[in-house]
Nucleic acid binder design. Structure first.
Lengths: 138, 138
DNA sequence: TCCTATGCTAGACAATATCTAAGTCGGCTG
DNA sequence: CAGCCGACTTAGATATTGTCTAGCATAGGA
């Protein structure tokens, strides 16, 4: 989205072809990509982009809060561009598919203070696990 | 604990010095260790134990349901020996400390069917994030 | 005690992520 | 609108984590 590029520019990001392509790859598909997948898609448009730049750019987007890093059981982290609406994840234990979901209720309020051990709890993130329609049918 | 060793023996595990040491390391400290940390502690007692054996043994313990694999933001997976009481995790975003916690309520029931997208939901795992007493004081 | 399948080892390999040194370029200044 | 500077990018080396292989060792049953 040009929204994203706009916000980044306003935050003093120097706009380069590489950063633009990475941001566009993420904003274009609302799915969870690994760094390598982002690199592959970015390289399709800008063949000489290096892996290091993709990693750097993803790291910056995460630091700016524009993208969320999601760690599942798979080895590689994935990057979720849906950072502006707080949500949780539903993961297929068979094929690894991920969906963003919006449960009701607030898990933080379900953690009694006796279970907080002096921590200042900021947020909670729920990972639902199960089988996706394709995998439970198979 | 010999509890754990007992259960493993009953399940037909061939008991070797290496497996005993790995199981003891996990059962001894109720903390979340990475595979490398398990290897280091195991090697303190049995110097020639190899990394492959530690990985294999941890994988078997996970498959047997005696240990849970926990993936946090850190790169390496950690192994949680508290597998027999379903629980969630409270993580310090600064220092990475992890506590097992038992919230009230059932997150699975908070996911309406309109948010399940045809998935068969089996379980939910909550990661609470915040600052531990030491880090919020600093 | 002996045998055999299972387990162990070192080290190679694979996958993911970060670092480094040198070259490039966005965008401010004049 | 040209020059400059520091932020950005690059290729490739390196680090970290995890898996595989081939041959040796051994637990535990006969």
């Amino acid at each position: 989205m040009s929204d994203l590029l706009e916000r980044l520019r306003r935050r003093g990001w120097r706009m380069t072809a590489q950063r633009r392509v990475v941001a566009e790859v993420l904003a274009g598909e609302h799915v969870h990509l690994t760094a390598d997948e982002v690199h592959a898609r970015a390289a399709a448009r800008l063949p000489e982009i290096s892996r290091a730049t993709v990693y750097n750019t993803l790291g910056e987007l995460v630091a700016l809060g524009e993208v969320i890093e999601v760690t599942t059981v798979k080895r590689a982290k994935t990057y979720d561009p849906n950072a502006h609406r707080h949500h949780h994840h539903l993961v297929c234990v068979r094929c690894g598919a991920v969906r963003d979901v919006y449960p009701t209720g607030d898990p933080v309020s379900d953690l009694p203070s006796s279970e907080r051990f002096g921590f200042t709890v900021q947020e909670a993130e729920i990972t639902y696990r199960g089988l996706c329609p394709g995998c439970s049918a198979g």
